[in-house]
Amino acid sequence: MELITWPDERLRRVADVIDVFDKALREQASKLEAVMRAGPAAVGIAAPQVGWLQRLVIVDVTARKGTNNGLLILLNPEIVQWQGSVIGREGCLSVPEYTGNVVRAAELVIEAQDLYGESCRYEASGFEARVIQHELDHLDGLLFTDRIVSRRSDLFLRQGGA
């Protein structure tokens, strides 16, 4: 299992819903997590980033300060509530050597299924919420470059009230 990078057209496809929750799926998810951990300071990965076109994302911001939900493996995830907006700097394992400022919801509630098909619901905010939104975009063929509001610092600064 290897990362694919833009302009691989698979990064632009809408991923399929997962409806079989078997051992093979769990093994595949484990390999995906290993790819994420091998990335430089990566805090999340989506299945399409390795050419696996199903709706599964992994998020882990436990190395960051602040509260979070720990290691999240989300299948068929959907944002069911959101509020607020923040601008943050993003890069992507699939788009090396490029970063930009992106607007994301500040807080969200997400519903998904786990690796056994059980329903789950999480609240996330701040950095973790941004990562979840970045990963969910991959499931719909979107990259952060589609959402960049500025490569320079002007808009970035507004979140700090400068």
């Binding site: 990335g39 430089p40 300071a41 990566a42 805090v43 999340g44 990965i45 998020v59 943050g88 700097r89 993003e90 890069g91 992507c92 394992l93 970063t99 950095f127 941004r130 990562v131 970045h134 990963e135 970035f156 600064l157 700090g160 009230g161 400068a162």
Partner: peptide
Amino acid sequence: LDAVLHPVDMLIA
């Protein structure tokens, strides 16, 4: 001067 320092909380995912 109005001087503000902002750490860049870079997200790579």
